[in-house]
Structure formats: structure tokens, C-alpha cells
Amino acid sequence: MTKRAPWPMVVPAGTTTVGTARVRDDSRPVMTTAQRRIYELTGNPPQSSALDDPHDPFAVPALSIAPTKKPAKYRNTKCEHEGIKFDSQRERSHWFHLVQQQAAGLISDLRLQVAFVLTERKQRDDGTWERKSTYVADFTYVRDGKLVVEDVKSEATRKNRTYIQKRKQMLDKHGITVKEIQ
């Protein structure tokens, strides 16, 4: 049996091998074979990632490309203008149109994202509570003394069952017809 070096072993800087052993630059653990295979299949690095180990012959070069985000359900692009966030570019452009109409004096009291309560919060017989139901309109304004509620909708979102139900409840509860903007 050979005599072992005292622990912790002191290795001078710049040494690459000690006997037949390779000296690593850092003390982080190396990926196991199972971790490496999982990384190759999924692209997800393990928690004890040692992907940047320059001496690992199986290391896969790190990808600098950010993972692609899943596109929005209805392919809308969220955007912002002067701190106001819009769900789509079409909604933002309609906002600009309404701002111009208000400046011209055709409409007044222009507001964004106005919530209307459709059903109040109620307590069930078993003591639990049923949440209130609300409809959030994209725009509301007053034209010729009458409140107008507008919602920017595409063909696909106009057919959404939840939207249709809430649109009908708006007419029933508040007597307001939601004007859909394409």
C-alpha cells in the first residue's frame, strides 16, 4: 500500500496533473453520466451544473440563444405606450383613435380597463363563498350623453364562450351593449 498525501492536498497553481490524476480548475462537482444524458435529452442543466468545465470531454457547448417564448393564444402582441400596457397592438391603435376623438370634443370621460360587476359575491348554503363575476371592458366613454363600452376583439376571441356569456350578462344586468371593435 502506498502512502497518501496529507489532506487537504496542496497543489501549486498552474499544475495540470498529479501522478495520473487530472487537476481541475474549480471545486464544483462534475455532472454524472445520468445528469449528462438528461441534459443532452432535455437541455435542462442539473442543479449542480458543471457545464463550463473545460476539461470535461463530454461537455456540450452552452447555447447562448434564449429559449423561445410560447406565442400568445390568439397571436396578439402585448405592447406599452407612455406607461399604459395594452393587450394588443390593435387595442393600442384604437386607444390613439379615441384620444383624438376626445381631443376633438366628440366623446368625453374616456377610460381604460373599466370593471363591471356582473354577479355579486354570495355565500352558499354550506357556508363557502362564491366569487363575484366581473367583466373588464377595454374602453368606456360618453358620447351624446350615453355610456359606450368598447372591446377590441379578433374573430377568434369574439367566439369565446366566456366572453359571449359576459357580454350577455352586461346587457341583462347593466343594459349596456358591448361594442366590438375589429
Rank of each mutant, 00 (worst) to 15 (best):
R158S: 11
D52Y: 15
N76V: 14
T157A: 03
T42M: 03
Q47T: 03
K69T: 12
L110H: 08
K179L: 13
P12F: 09
D56R: 05
T20Q: 12
A50F: 10
V148F: 04
R143A: 14
L147D: 02
Q47V: 13
V18A: 12
R37A: 00
R75N: 09
Q182E: 15
V10R: 10
Q89I: 10
Q165W: 05
D125A: 11
T15M: 14
L51A: 07
L118N: 00
L106I: 15
R4T: 13
R124L: 12
T68F: 10
W129A: 03
E82S: 10
D26G: 15
P12S: 10
T128P: 08
E180R: 01
I84K: 04
S154A: 06
A66Y: 06
V11W: 09
R124V: 00
G19D: 08
M170W: 01
D172Q: 14
R161I: 10
S49I: 08
E120H: 07
P71Q: 06
M31A: 00
M170D: 08
K132W: 13
S93F: 07
Q101E: 09
I65R: 04
Q100C: 05
L171S: 04
R167L: 11
A59W: 04
A72N: 11
V11T: 15
M170H: 03
P46I: 10
P54I: 08
A62N: 03
Y39V: 03
R28H: 11
A5P: 07
E180Q: 08
E150T: 06
D126N: 13
M170C: 05
S49Q: 03
D26R: 14
F86S: 00
V152R: 00
Y74L: 09
L118W: 06
D26K: 13
R121I: 08
G14K: 13
V117G: 00
A103M: 08
E82A: 07
V18H: 12
P61D: 09
G127N: 01
S64D: 10
D109W: 07
